[in-house]
């Protein structure tokens, strides 16, 4: 199925959860926070949150800021 990660379209397996997505995409163990379709998904819910066709995922990390 098709999803977008940080604005870029990707194809992934159906029934993928957020924890598995982070693993597949190389974010495992990194300090990131995730939002799904504009809603924050805390780490404690990554495993139970299943992605759907068209899901928009934001993966954010610490960055310079003023």
């Amino acid at each position: 199925m098709k999803i977008t990660i940080n604005g870029q379209e990707k194809t992934c397996a159906a029934q993928l959860d957020i924890a598995a997505l982070l693993e597949t995409e190389g974010y495992a163990g990194k300090l990131v926070a995730v939002a799904l379709n504009g809603t924050f998904i805390p780490k404690s819910r990554h495993k139970e949150t299943i992605l759907n066709e068209g899901s928009a995922i934001e993966i954010l990390a610490p960055m310079q800021g003023g």
Partner: peptide
């Protein structure tokens, strides 16, 4: 002050965070 931005798989945000953490100064995310 620090921020959050889209991360790439290369982990550019992680390197920045390592510098900030080394100072042990409180951070204020924006």
């Amino acid at each position: 002050t620090v921020s959050l931005r889209r991360e790439n798989a290369a982990g550019k945000g992680q390197k920045f965070w390592d510098i900030i953490k080394s100072f042990n100064i409180p951070v204020l995310p924006n």
